[in-house]
Computed example of a mutant assay.
Amino acid sequence: MTKKTTSFSIKNWSQDDQPREKLRDKGKSVLSDAELLAILIGSGNKDESAVSLSKRILSSANYNLNTLGKLNLKQLMAFKGIGEAKAISIIAALELARRRRGTVAIEKKKINSSASVFELMQPIVGELPHEEFWIIYLNNSNKIIQKQQLSKGGITGTLVDVRLVLKTALEVGAVALLLVHNHPSGSLKPSEADKKLTQKLKNAAQSLDIKVLDHLIITEKAYFSFADETLL
């Protein structure tokens, strides 16, 4: 006699337990993170449902979506029931969420504090494994005209082309600049190179009546502001 294998596909669950139908009938806000993740993966494995598998995946990330977003393809595929296609779906969905946060920050447009700079740039550089240096160009109302990555992989005076920064500032009509870079190490302490580079850009910009309003060092969860700490 052949033993019947129980299917854990979402379509075979009772209607009350189906997250797709729950989202359709009750709205997205009532679903747990595990239920939303279960919709993405569609099914679990022969031993557990998609929601149960999703809970296990979330547990491995301490139920933190930012931590989950850092898992790579190989790490996700280590879970039984998560093949390449499902792993790619999870990574793509979390990347969209990260970009959405950045878009919302950009829509605010006006920069009125160091916290607003952090909100804008943390989704872009806060979780990177390498350093990046960015310039934000502002008009006379402190509204963003443009933001631009200037260097990637490290921070030294030789990697930041001051002439390019000022050339772009003149081209877009900027009257103020914000400097931003990340510290993958998690340290918020500015290095001597950070301080020298800040002063170098500030002095060069002043000659064109362009102000450097702040320089932020950003980590995953926090930031250091040169302006707030009166280092400008």
Rank of each mutant, 00 (worst) to 15 (best):
T168C: 11
H130C: 01
G186T: 06
N142L: 15
T230L: 15
I136V: 15
L150A: 03
H130Y: 13
T158C: 02
N142H: 14
L150K: 08
E131F: 01
L128M: 08
F224P: 00
D214C: 15
F224V: 06
L138T: 03
S151E: 07
V175C: 13
H181N: 14
K195I: 14
V212I: 14
D161N: 15
V162N: 14
G154V: 03
K221R: 00
S151A: 13
V180D: 02
I210N: 04
L159E: 08
Y137F: 14
L166T: 11
L208A: 04
A115G: 02
N142C: 13
K221Q: 00
H183K: 12
L188P: 05
S225K: 07
V172G: 03
E119G: 01
K143T: 12
T198W: 02
D161A: 14
A176T: 05
E119L: 00
K211F: 13
P184E: 07
E171Y: 07
Y223E: 03
V212D: 09
L177A: 10
F224N: 03
P184M: 03
G173S: 07
I135A: 07
K221D: 01
V162T: 15
I218C: 04
S187D: 12
L231T: 02
S151C: 09
K195Y: 07
I145D: 14
A115P: 01
K221P: 00
G157E: 12
K167I: 00
A193S: 14
E171D: 14
T198N: 08
K189E: 13
K152S: 06
L138K: 00
G154M: 07
V175L: 05
T198V: 02
F224Q: 04
L120K: 04
L164W: 01
A222Q: 10
Q146A: 10
L120E: 05
A204S: 12
A205R: 02
P184Q: 05
A205I: 06
I144W: 04
L178D: 00
K189G: 01
G154W: 09
T198E: 04
K189S: 09
